[in-house]
C-alpha cells in the first residue's frame, strides 16, 4: 500500500517536500537527526491531538506524545513500509499508548487531580488553536458522515474516546456482538470511502 510518491493524507501540516515520511523514517533509522526533525514537523500535531482526544488532560497527552515520538526515533529502523504507511504506524503507536494509559489504574487515580488542575487546563486551552481545516480533514468528515449513526457512534466512542467495545456496548445499551459488527461495518465503509489499502 506504500510505494506511491504521494504521502497519505492528514499527517502532514507542513508543505510537502518530495520525500515521503516512509523514506525519512529510513534515514531516521540510521540515526539521521535532521530527518527526524522533519518527521517531527509532520506528525507531532497529530500525535499530540490524538493523545489529547483520548486522554483529555493536555499534560498527560504531552507525556504520551513525548513517549511516542521517542519511540519513533528508537524503533524507526524496525518500521516496515511493506506493512503499512508511516502515518498509520505512528497513529497506531499513539492510540495504543494513550488507551493503555487511560485504562490503567494510574490514570483513574489521576482523574481527581486532573479536575483539580482544571484552571491550568483552561489557560492552556486558550493558547491552543485548532489546526486549520485541510481538504483531507474535510474528506474524512465526509466519510464519517457516510456511516450510519450507530456505526459512527461505536467507531468514534472507541477511537476518540478510547473506550473498549464492552464499554461501548454498555453505554449504547447494545449487545457485544452488535457493537463488534458495527465497528467492523463502520471501518469497512470508512476504508472504502477513504480509498486506503486498496492499492496494496
Amino acid at each position: 500500500m506504500v510505494g506511491r510518491q504521494e504521502v497519505a493524507p492528514g499527517l502532514s501540516s507542513v508543505p510537502e517536500p518530495g520525500e515521503t515520511t516512509e523514506a525519512l523514517l529510513e534515514r531516521v533509522g540510521r540515526g539521521d537527526e535532521a530527518a527526524f526533525e522533519q518527521v517531527y514537523a509532520r506528525v507531532a500535531d497529530v500525535v499530540f491531538g490524538l493523545a489529547r482526544s483520548v486522554l483529555r488532560d493536555p499534560h498527560q497527552a504531552e507525556e504520551v506524545a513525548q513517549e511516542v515520538l521517542l519511540e519513533v526515533w528508537r524503533s524507526a529502523a524496525r518500521f516496515d513500509a511493506a506493512k503499512g504507511s508511516a502515518r498509520a504506524w505512528i497513529a497506531t503507536l499513539t492510540h495504543r499508548r494513550a488507551v493503555d494509559r487511560v485504562r490503567s489504574s494510574q490514570a483513574s487515580r489521576n482523574r481527581d487531580q486532573a479536575v483539580a488542575s482544571r484552571s491550568n487546563e483552561r489557560e492552556y486551552d486558550e493558547v491552543v488553536e485548532k489546526v486549520e481545516r485541510t481538504l483531507d480533514a474535510e474528506r474524512v468528515r465526509h466519510c464519517l458522515d457516510g456511516l450510519t449513526p450507530r456505526q459512527r457512534d461505536t467507531v468514534t466512542l472507541a477511537y476518540y474516546g478510547g473506550r473498549s467495545y464492552a464499554d461501548v456496548a454498555g453505554l449504547l445499551k447494545l449487545p457485544l456482538g452488535t457493537v463488534k459488527t458495527r465497528m467492523r461495518d463502520g471501518l469497512i465503509r470508512l476504508r472504502d470511502c477513504l480509498g486506503v489499502g486498496s492499492d496494496a
Binding site: 492528514g10 497529530v46 490524538l50 497506531t92 467507531v155
Partner: peptide, 14 residues
C-alpha cells in the same frame, strides 16, 4: 490506515 485518517482530524498544535 483508515483510523490514521481519523487521527488526522483531531490534530492540534503540539
Amino acid at each position: 490506515e483508515a483510523t490514521a485518517s481519523l487521527a488526522a482530524r483531531v490534530a492540534e498544535p503540539a
